[in-house]
Amino acid sequence: MTKAAKTSISREQLCGYLDDSLCDTETARVEDALRHSESLRKDLRSLMQERDRGEHSVGAIWRRSRLTCPNREQLGSFLLGVLDAGFHGYVEFHLKTVGCAFCLANLADLEEQRREAAPHTHQRRKRYFESSAGLLRGKR
């Protein structure tokens, strides 16, 4: 979180926490606050009840629809530094200030792809495949 960010936890941050869409630092901050504040737990309870009743927010729809998330190709171009300055600045803001967990995961994956030795990746994918392929239709 940047220094100008609010010190308290907003309703939308709680909402983002429930959606697992916060970055790790912000998630840790919300969890820490929840552990120590009965009043915040009350807010969370009330938010959950509202969601249970089918109430929603513009923010939740924005996050769920990923309205401002750059796509994978744009993130790749961001890493290479080839986006135009305005959009580059916006992607940086989306990653660092908004802290979008899904885009940060994509970015980390793209960075990892540039570094990681192929045999490692191959082994991991083989393990996932072997543990799940039995569930494919026609294989049962």
């Binding site: 609010k6 939308e12 923010g59 959009f87 600045g89 989306h94 200030t97 908004v98």
Partner: peptide, 23 residues
């Protein structure tokens, strides 16, 4: 992009107008 940032901080992060303006 400035407008996008304003709206994202207001709606997605739930910041107050004052905090968004300062940031």
């Amino acid at each position: 992009f400035g407008r996008m940032k304003v709206l994202e901080l207001l709606f997605v992060k739930g910041w107050a107008n004052r905090d968004v303006a300062a940031f």
